[in-house]
Design a protein around this nucleic acid. Structure first.
Lengths: 141, 141
DNA sequence: GCTTGACTTCAAGTTAACTTGAACTTGTAG
DNA sequence: CTACAAGTTCAAGTTAACTTGAAGTCAAGC
């Protein structure tokens, strides 16, 4: 069993973040008689999962949903992982594709000086369907 | 000269966002006698620039700095654009590279079940140098 | 002349993912 | 036994990029 500082040091995630994750139900701990948290070693793998997923671009809420898909009682099998990773792959590929489109737009479109709100499919946000929340920041995904 | 609603409709950016951009100095407007904003057509190109840069992942602050590099008096030349785009290319390429690393980690590392905080270079945030702000969210960039 | 719609400013609210601070308790080294 | 480090909770602060709401002005059609 590990203290919160142990976990923080081994994972590189701040203690305050670990408490926050626990509050959100992403990780769990037992308590020592003193009320201090004691984490099982397996929490490190779970945190690795969280950090990895974040770098891919998932929100904590999405990550919570993903974690819920994994069996709580047993170690995840190769099959469990591959189901998850399939979805993630798609997501990564989509973002890579978008970045590559932007990249080529940078030479073809900005490079040639044509950057026009009317003609340029890259710059024109109307090309990317309806907004699903507050403001332009949602185009960025 | 265009009203704020004209600009909003043609650019797909909400009026409130346009006011916000103006407040931040990213775009400018004249005022009609009534006090209402009047935008020159050239603002559309500027907004296209902003939206494009956002999709690449620049913050508004960074975008402001980029816009400041462009000459205020004349139309940007091919040379002006290419100086900017060089930097942006690098940025895009870096992010694409990271996503590809993550992608291969998904098969090699999670796929094989090895996702371990100790061994896995993808999951271990300590591999990615010092934090430069509050919290794990800064690893995500 | 009156209503309706577009516009204005300014202050405050929103979301995610945490961090920070206050006030307090526990564990450990000497 | 006494420091002092490490842990606890709970409330409030942080950042980006806007949005929303209140309260008021302006312009146009009937």
């Amino acid at each position: 069993m590990l203290t919160i500082t142990d976990v923080s040091q081994r994972s590189g995630v701040a203690s305050s973040a670990l408490r926050f994750y626990e509050e959100r139900g992403l990780i769990v701990s037992k308590r020592a008689g003193s009320g201090h948290r004691r984490f099982p070693r397996s929490v490190l793998r779970r945190i690795a999962f969280i950090v990895f997923a974040q770098r891919i671009g998932l929100t904590l809420e999405e990550i919570g949903a993903e974690l819920a898909k994994l069996p709580a009682d047993r170690m995840p099998t190769r099959g469990d992982w591959s189901r998850l990773s399939g979805e993630w792959m798609k997501r990564i590929d989509k973002r890579i594709a978008e970045l590559q489109r932007l990249r080529s737009g940078l030479t073809e479109c900005i490079g040639c000086g044509c950057l026009s709100i009317d003609r340029c499919r890259l710059a024109n946000p109307a090309d990317t369907a309806g907004r699903k929340g507050p403001g332009p920041r949602y185009w960025l995904g």
